[in-house]
């Protein structure tokens, strides 16, 4: 093993000297942000350029989806990036894996301006910077009577008409939680009855989706008429099928948030606090919302009804939502994935 290790190092080092010359060495003060990577132009104009003036630093991005970036952060033992944007269930996993620093709320004055729900959604860790909903959408031209309850998913007239989020997506486990409620049990305690209810859904499900674009394709080609979805996909679905409607559910929708955390190995902690405070400020949140990037979580943001219609917006709407227990959900997730596979895999 030692010899192998030696050859390995020798090869790597010789190759590194050959190829490594091309990449510049790190600058003295570089702030690294891990995030998804879409909407780069707006992110740059609204957040990065103004923040550069505040911090007098270089800004570098690591991009990719939640799982990719969290996996890499873990492999590097929490080093390499300063702040990381994640959706709620992934940031909970990062917390459980010890990847983030605890947050000192006094260093983020703008926290006071955001909705209570978003200040510390996952214990002592990072705040939410945007809020969304998971609910049901349906084609009002083809689904009659309209969908008014989570229980409608089980309706016999919706045979081969439904798409659920796959168990491995952000919203997937929420389908399991709703199935538990439908069966009248606690989904975390009574897995058996919960998955009986999931199984009862099977004949209504055409295919479960794994990405937003897959869902939009299923809707636009008419394969699916009813779906459990996140609100940001609605506009695209309506562009494809005008009659797609966000259902008004009597039980209410489920909240989802995206969080921002300071990584355990951050070497620019003060800057990280400044950055988080900056993206929660009214000015940034206002711009991001007006340009259709993210729904605002700052209570002082003012939107016209037209700007607001694509977002979860306003105290009343936000107040009607509830967060799920991420720690409970993540603890159950492995078991749920197996059960879900068994139900839909047969």
């Amino acid at each position: 093993m030692k010899a192998a290790r030696f050859i390995q190092m020798a090869t790597v080092i010789s190759l590194a000297t050959l190829g490594g010359a091309a990449t510049a060495s790190a600058q003295s003060k570089t702030f690294t942000i891990s995030w998804w990577g879409y909407n780069g132009e707006k992110m740059n104009a609204n957040i990065i350029e103004p923040f550069k003036k505040i911090c007098d630093c270089n800004i570098v991005f690591e991009t990719g989806n939640n799982a990719d970036r969290l996996n890499k952060l873990k492999l590097r033992d929490g080093k390499g990036v300063d702040v990381i944007y994640l959706s709620d269930s992934f940031s909970q996993q990062g917390i459980e894996q010890g990847m983030f620093k605890e947050i000192d709320q006094s260093k983020i004055p703008n926290l006071k301006e955001i909705y209570e729900l978003g200040r510390a959604p996952q214990g002592k860790y990072g705040p939410a910077y945007t809020i969304g909903r998971v609910g049901l959408v349906y084609d009002s031209a083809k689904v009659n009577p309209p969908i008014t309850s989570w229980n409608d998913l089980w309706r016999p007239d919706l045979k081969s008409a439904v798409s659920l989020p796959g168990i491995t997506t952000t919203a997937g486990p929420m389908a399991v939680i709703q199935a538990g409620k439908h069966a009248g049990v606690d989904p975390y305690a009574d897995t058996e009855k919960t998955f009986k209810a999931v199984e009862a859904l099977k004949s209504n499900v055409v295919k479960n989706y794994n990405t937003g674009s897959e869902l939009v394709n299923l809707i636009s080609t008419g394969e699916v008429r009813v779906a459990m979805a996140q609100d940001f996909t609605l506009a695209s679905m309506q562009a494809a099928v005008k009659t797609m409607t966000w259902a008004k559910l009597k039980e209410g929708d489920i909240a989802t948030v995206n969080t921002i955390n300071i990584s355990k190995g951050s070497e620019n902690v003060d800057l990280a606090y400044k950055f988080i405070d900056f993206i929660l400020s009214k000015d940034v949140q206002q711009k991001e919302a007006e340009q259709g990037v993210d729904a605002p979580i700052n209570t002082k943001v003012q939107l016209t009804p037209d700007q607001a219609k694509i977002w979860t917006y306003g105290a009343e709407q936000v107040g009607s939502l509830s967060l799920i227990s991420y720690s409970k959900m993540n603890a159950a997730k492995t078991e749920w994935i197996d059960q879900w596979n068994e139900v839909f895999g047969k």
Binding site: G37, Y38, F61, T63, G64, G212, S213
Partner: peptide
């Protein structure tokens, strides 16, 4: 590439996937 890209360096297929997280055009 998902694993081998890092801060400051990404590839086109990964960038396309990133775009598709939010846009379905």
């Amino acid at each position: 590439s998902v694993f081998l890209t890092g801060p400051g360096i990404s590839t086109l297929p990964i960038q396309i996937l990133a775009h598709m997280e939010q846009f379905f055009d």
